Computed example of a mutant assay.
Amino acid sequence: MSLEWLDVTAVNIHEINVGLDLYKESFPEEVREPQQTFYDSMRKAEVATGQTYRFIVGKEEGKVVSFATGHYFSSINAGFIVYIVTDPHLRSKGIGAETLRALEERLHYDARQAGYHEIADILLETEHKDCVHTMLEKEECDKRALFFSRNGYSIMKDIVYVQPPLHQGEEIVPLHLYSKNVTTTVSDINAMIYEIYYQKYYRINGIDKATLNQCLQQMNIHRMIES
């Protein structure tokens, strides 16, 4: 299957709504980032040195069937995939894998533009199966784990990873951290986590420093966010 790709940028930012309808259908409200976060990600990437933001929409015969978002940070030469979504009625057709490859290609391009021969790693978060509540959620969790494994991602088993609460009043969420490069050291991964926390969760999502520093301490990362 070959999809038509729409790259949403500051030039055609009005197109961002094309992918958000599928986003709202695919995730419950409590795990969705506010819509403003997508705009802020794009706007701040435009002015931030060494940072890019990718928002791609996959279309088949004019219909939106997938979308994905991710960041590239040159300071750590790494990508961070935030969302990858496919139409639930069109799964098992290779759309998810094609969407993931399309996003990875763009992150690799960003690394080369930043002066690197290749990207050092691409990271992403997924939920723990032990933290879901229903059999259906467990099945979906298993499917995601298999999907990422088939596409070259591995769980960083030596990393204790948590996601900060996306909405005020919520709890810290234990998640799995997946890596595309299994040779990346724990020390390097910790540096990448700090940069993701600082650049995305602090500068873009606007989560308060105290909460983020609590999460960093919980992950045994001793560098704190100060500004």
Score class of each variant (00 low, 15 high):
residue 131 C to Y: 09
residue 117 H to L: 12
residue 143 K to W: 09
residue 98 E to M: 04
residue 79 G to A: 09
residue 45 A to S: 06
residue 66 S to E: 10
residue 85 V to L: 06
residue 160 V to K: 15
residue 103 L to M: 13
residue 138 K to Q: 01
residue 146 L to I: 12
residue 131 C to D: 09
residue 172 I to P: 03
residue 47 V to P: 00
residue 113 Q to A: 14
residue 128 H to P: 03
residue 169 G to P: 00
residue 82 V to T: 14
residue 74 S to L: 08
residue 53 Y to I: 04
residue 75 S to I: 07
residue 145 A to E: 15
residue 93 K to Q: 15
residue 125 E to M: 06
residue 90 L to K: 15
residue 114 A to V: 12
residue 140 E to T: 02
residue 50 G to P: 01
residue 90 L to T: 11
residue 47 V to W: 01
residue 102 A to R: 13
residue 162 V to Y: 15
residue 118 E to F: 07
residue 133 H to W: 02
residue 75 S to C: 02
residue 103 L to P: 04
residue 52 T to N: 08
residue 93 K to V: 03
residue 141 C to D: 05
residue 135 M to Q: 08
residue 119 I to L: 07
residue 74 S to I: 10
residue 54 R to W: 15
residue 46 E to D: 12
residue 91 R to M: 12
residue 62 G to Q: 01
residue 123 L to W: 02
residue 165 P to Q: 01
residue 160 V to L: 15
residue 123 L to Y: 10
residue 116 Y to I: 09
residue 136 L to M: 13
residue 68 A to P: 11
residue 157 K to Q: 09
residue 75 S to A: 13
residue 58 G to T: 10
residue 86 T to K: 10
residue 109 Y to K: 13
residue 133 H to Q: 08
residue 135 M to W: 02
residue 101 R to N: 07
residue 108 H to W: 12
residue 164 P to I: 07
residue 82 V to Q: 15
residue 78 A to C: 12
residue 143 K to M: 11
residue 96 G to K: 05
residue 69 T to L: 11
residue 78 A to P: 00
residue 106 R to W: 09
residue 165 P to W: 04
residue 98 E to G: 04
residue 55 F to D: 11
residue 126 T to F: 02
residue 72 Y to E: 03
residue 163 Q to I: 05
residue 108 H to Q: 13
residue 61 E to L: 06
residue 144 R to L: 10
residue 60 E to K: 15
residue 132 V to P: 00
residue 123 L to Q: 02
residue 134 T to V: 08
residue 92 S to H: 15
residue 84 I to P: 03
residue 149 S to W: 12
residue 153 Y to C: 04
residue 63 K to M: 04
residue 89 H to R: 15
residue 148 F to R: 03
residue 58 G to P: 08
residue 142 D to Y: 01
residue 166 L to S: 00
residue 149 S to H: 14
residue 50 G to R: 06
residue 82 V to L: 14
residue 111 A to I: 08
residue 147 F to M: 05
residue 78 A to T: 14
residue 149 S to N: 15
